[in-house]
Structure formats: structure tokens, C-alpha cells
Design a binder for these strands. Structure first.
Lengths: 349, 349
DNA sequence: CGCTCCCGTGGGAGCGCTCCCAGGTTGGCA
DNA sequence: TGCCAACCTGGGAGCGCTCCCACGGGAGCG
């Protein structure tokens, strides 16, 4: 008699969990049929399907994910990869909203969501290793830098990937991005529409595509209004509050009569707001101010900041959807989705 | 000749990935020995170990997680479960800090972190199913309500679990919590130490243990100062900004001469701050204000809020550590960890 | 009326690993 | 010198699933 690892002849699954085989026995069919039912194959007679479904319900059968992964060479898991430095920068709820969206979309699948924070080179190394070992079926990559080696690695390994944002105007990989240009333009147009004429902008670091886009939108609006070309109205920040402060100080020095500012992030706008206050200017009476992100920072500022909102959760949902598609149809088609933004009016402009 | 699923006789692993068997062949040892090396068993001669390690390096071998999970009946994954309503409430960076800590601690293991948001009953249902199917080796549960059925389910299924916070003073399951009582007490003591005498508090919903703790701390400080017993100085909020507003209005009505307020969360403090301003009072000159959480809301308020800070990331790290221990030593020992808080002084008190 | 064709089905083989058993080797001790 | 214990070691069996091959029977065709 073979004893094996303790499984009784009766076929009690490990830990008492029912197996495919037990379902098959119960339903009076073969393993293949049960597998087909579980995986939604149409090649099953209505009668067999009913019997199997009944057996599944009675036994409380849940497929063993590891066995499935081993046999089918897939993992039913996707990784959400977050390079840490990014999340430090201001918009933290942003991240949570993305997770929310992704999670919502994945809830209907039986895909698992793996969270991977990348802070140290070591963690980066480990991630690369995991990817080589194909421990996930796909990757969602949040806010990539232009020079990040990760996207290329993913492309080389042919791991289905969706980026949140793009690295440049000619991004090849699948991505989901907000309409940063349009959002910035609408912000500037709003300021111009209020009758403001000395409309400045505080940019993000221009080696980031998103920052260039927001500057572009501003520039477009200024040009359309016939007010373009004055580069002294452009101050450079780095998406931090302190950067916003410094930029605002520089702007005030160059243009004491400034009457409106579009900051490329709420956090920078918040810094600018403090400097404006310190200089004795009132917001929005003397200087109107618009931020970008529609974050908690904007809501809690005093006055609350008018800001360009991104459909963050929707972006998360879209990313997940695109990724699932890409995993499904292994054709390697790439999708590029740009979601529109919305100006949220509050007290500051 | 057996053809199987396309594996050539030479033994190319699927997708070209090296397998244990290939490593064994290369190192000139048996599968068992490679397995022992990979899993750090001491029962291997130095010579064999060296040969195996060399082979692993040359081949770039990474163990197949699914196979390991199937054979060993474990998953090498833990789930971080977040009941959604919680995260909505204010302190969102809190969540990210927890993730950060957990992630840090897990980085040295080859445990994967699964993120599970619970918003709908359906998602709850799915989670329960996953747990029954033992798809994770352990669970980290963020901010549980007293009446949440999840902890009991986990206990019943004997899934190693660590709670963030506890459900009551007599929590049996493993948990990691902040010293809410001590934090609240130090906040109130700070206000009293400034010479304030009419020190009120805005509580959270008292069906939450954390809210009761913070009220307790306040009460202790007031009693010690010989100022206890005046229940009209206690107003009830619900951890929301609007709740904070309402509570503050009530307090001002009852005690126009109020000179200090301890709010059990920054978000409520922020609401209170607005009401105080509207009433023409200056903060901190007329009324000193202390919040709880040391969140972004506190930092960005005007004036920035003095607040009780929790070592959030450290809590995450500790949770992970405790969980790993519990998984490792299947003795079922429970650990209770309470980390101390720290009063962060800013402009409001 | 016989022959395809196809649908539905059962079950063998195998995914890559761990567990464990049996066997060989070595060294210590009487 | 002989015996036994301790240590290493190889490899069989099996984890629960998917994939696929082969087989049976009913429908459709000439």
C-alpha cells in the first residue's frame, strides 16, 4: 500500500479542502469536465454542467491557485509597482485612488493584486528577478521617470505592462494618462477669463513629461490670448512645497503686479499661497491661484484651492482593464488612453 | 516516445526558465540536495552547497513559486486587508505609511504582499472564500471595527493574523496599536501646561475603541489637573471634518470662554479650526488646538496643527514582523504591541 | 443505410517543487 | 578490528490542476 504524504485513500484534500477530483467524483463526471465547467468552456452539456455546479456548491470547492498556476503556467496575479520617490511627492491620496480603481476592476476577475514598493536598488533588483521568473502575469507601473530602466526591462521580457502616465510624447508601451495639456490650458484660460492679465505659472521639473505637458497647456492658453512669449512669467519648481515657495518669490520679484498664478501641482500652489500671504497679497482678490491634482491639500488650504482634477480612480480602473486585455489577447497590441481633466472651482480663483 | 507538453528531452524549463532539476544536473547532485540548499537546510556538505550555488548563479535559477506552493502547501504571500470605509476617513497617508512599513519588513523575506480592499459585501464574500482556500499564509488587518466579523472568521480558520489597532481592551488576537491613551493625555497635558484652564475635547465615535482611548487620555489629564468631571467640555464627533465643525459649534455655545481644544483627529481639528476662525477667535492666541494623527492635514493647516503623531511606518513594520513570527512558529502565540506616540509641536498650541 | 464529422467526455501525462525514505559513507568507540 | 550512530545524499511519490489525446455516439450526408 502506498502511503504518500498522509492523504487517506478516501481522498480528503489537504487541510480538508475539496479538490477537482472530489468534485468530479461527486458529480459523477471526469476531471476534465469539472475543469471545463470551472473555466467556463462551452464544450460541456447542460446536464453535466448542472451536476458539476451542484457538486461545487455542496463541497464549497475553490480551485487551488498554486496548482492552476503550475499547470497552466500563469499566475493570475498582477503587480502594482510604485517607485517610492514618486509617492513622497505630494499627492498621496492619488496613489490610493489608483489602487481603488485597480482593485474595483480586478474584483470581477480572480486576479490578485500584488503591491510592490520600490525604494532601494535591492528592491529593484528583486523585482527584476521576480519578473524574470514570471511571478506575475502583468504589471501596472505608476508614474515612471523618463530614464527609468524598468519599462524597457518589462518590454524586453514581454511582460504585459500598462504605465500610468507616459515617458514622452512618443510612448510606445500601453499607458493611461490624464490630459495634462488640456487641464493646464483650462486652468490658464479660467484665470484669463476672470480678466487677469499677468498670469504666471510655476512648473514642475521639466525633465518630467507631465511637467512639460502642463507648461504646454499654459503656454497654449497664453498664446491664444495674445499674451504669450513672456518667459519671465514662467518659474520652475520641483513639485514640492518649498519649490513652490521659491518659485513664487522669484515671480513676485520679477512681477510685483502679478494677478494670477497657475501652479502645476497643489503642493506647489500651497507653497505659493503662503508666500503670497506673507507678501500681504490677498487670494483671490489680488492674485488668483489655481493648482493641479485636486488633492486633499487643495481642499484643506485656506482659501481652498481651485484645482485641475484628474479622474484618478477612473485611471486606475482603465489601467486594470487595459492590462487584462493585454494579458488575454497575447497579440501585443498597445493601447494609449488619455482621460480628460476637470477644473474644480473653489475659493482661490 | 513521450512528447508531453513540448518540453524537449534536454529539459528546457518552460519559457526557458531553469528548474530545480536543471540546477541539480549542472551541479552534479540530486534534486533533494538543491532543494536543501535553496531552503537553507544545514544538512548539506560545504562542497555540495558550493557546487549548487555556482550552478544556481550560472543558470540564474529562481524557484517556481507555484510549484513550491503546491508541494509545500503554503503560499508565501500575506494579505493586507483594508476595509474601505476606514481609509475614507481622513488619514489617508496613514495607510500608505503602513504599506511602507510592511513592505520594508517583507523585503527581506520572499513573501509577497497582496492588497485587498473591502468595500462591498461581495468583496467581503470573496475574501472569505480566498481565506477558506488558504490562498495566503497570513493576514494583516487594518483598522477593524468592534463588530467586524472578519477577525472571528480568521480566528476560526486559524489563519495567522495581526490587527492594526484592537477591538477592545481585551483583544485576544495579535495586534499592533499606538498608545492612544498616552498620546491623548500628553496632548491635554500640553494644553494645561500652557496655562489653559477650559480645555475641551472633540471625540471620535465612541463605539470605536480608539476613540474611547483618546477620550480616556484626555480625561486622565483633566483629572490629574483637578479639572475633571465637566462633561460639558466633551463634544462628540465622528472623525469627519463636518463632525469636527458641529462639535466645535456646540462647545462654543456651551463655553464661550473656552481656551483650548483637543480633537481626537486632525481632520476634526481642521473642522474645529474653521469654526473657531469664523467665530472671530484666534488660534492659538485665544484658543489653543491640538489634533491627533500628525497627518498632512495638520501640516497644511493654517496655522499648522500641533498634533499627536503615531509611528505609522514602524507600526507597519512591527505588524509584518509579528505576522511572520506567527506564521513561522505555528504555536498560536499571540503578541500585543503598543507603540508610543509623540506630540508634534506646531503653530496651533 | 452506411459513412463521415463533430460534440462531449474521461483520463494519462506532466507542470516544478517538497517531503521523506532508504541507502551509502564516515567516524567514534568498545 | 568490528559495530553502530550520525551525517549526506539521491530519487520516488505526490501536491491539484491543465492540456490534450483518444474514444463513443448522434446527427447529417450521399
Amino acid at each position: 500500500m502506498v502511503t504518500g504524504k498522509g492523504t487517506t485513500a478516501a481522498g480528503e484534500g489537504r487541510g480538508g479542502r475539496p479538490t477537482l477530483e472530489m468534485v468530479a467524483a461527486r458529480a459523477g463526471v471526469g476531471r476534465g469536465t469539472v475543469s471545463r465547467v470551472v473555466n467556463g468552456s462551452p464544450q460541456v452539456s447542460a446536464q453535466a454542467r448542472a451536476a458539476v455546479e451542484a457538486a461545487i456548491a455542496e463541497l464549497g470547492y475553490v480551485p487551488n491557485r498554486a496548482a492552476r498556476a503550475l499547470a497552466a503556467d500563469r499566475t493570475d496575479a498582477v503587480a502594482l509597482v510604485i517607485p517610492e520617490p514618486e509617492t513622497r511627492l505630494g499627492a498621496e491620496p492619488y496613489f490610493l485612488d489608483i489602487v481603488r480603481g485597480v482593485s474595483t476592476e480586478l474584483a470581477d476577475t480572480d486576479m490578485q493584486l500584488l503591491l510592490t514598493l520600490i525604494r532601494t536598488p535591492r528592491e529593484r533588483q528583486r523585482l527584476a528577478q521576480h519578473l524574470e521568473a514570471r511571478r506575475v502575469d502583468g504589471v501596472l507601473l505608476v508614474s515612471v521617470h523618463e530614464n527609468d530602466p524598468l519599462p524597457s526591462l518589462l518590454e524586453r521580457l514581454r511582460v504585459p505592462t500598462v504605465l500610468n502616465g507616459r515617458r514622452s510624447e512618443r510612448e510606445r508601451m500601453s499607458y493611461v494618462d490624464a490630459d495634462n495639456v488640456g487641464g493646464a490650458r483650462s486652468a490658464a484660460e479660467h484665470l484669463l477669463g476672470m480678466g487677469r492679465r499677468t498670469v504666471a505659472t510655476i512648473t514642475g521639473p521639466l525633465d518630467m513629461y507631465v511637467a512639460r505637458c502642463r507648461l504646454d497647456g499654459y503656454t497654449q492658453a497664453m498664446n491664444s490670448a495674445g499674451l504669450g512669449g513672456d518667459t519671465s512669467l514662467v518659474a520652475h519648481g520641483d513639485f514640492t512645497e518649498e519649490g513652490g515657495r521659491a518659485a513664487m518669490r522669484a515671480l513676485l520679484e520679477r512681477h510685483p503686479g502679478i494677478d494670477a498664478v497657475f501652479a502645476a501641482s497643489d503642493v506647489m500652489a500651497s507653497g505659493a499661497l503662503h508666500v503670497l500671504r506673507q507678501s500681504g497679497r490677498r487670494v483671490p482678490e489680488d492674485v488668483a491661484l489655481v493648482g493641479f491634482d485636486d488633492s486633499a491639500v487643495a481642499r484643506h488650504a485656506d482659501p481652498p484651492l481651485t484645482s485641475v482634477g484628474q479622474p484618478t480612480e477612473e485611471m486606475g480602473r482603465t489601467m486594470a482593464r487595459v492590462l487584462l486585455e493585454e494579458i488575454e489577447s497575447r497579440t501585443g497590441v498597445r493601447r494609449h488612453v488619455v482621460l480628460s481633466t476637470e477644473l474644480v472651482l473653489r475659493g482661490s480663483a
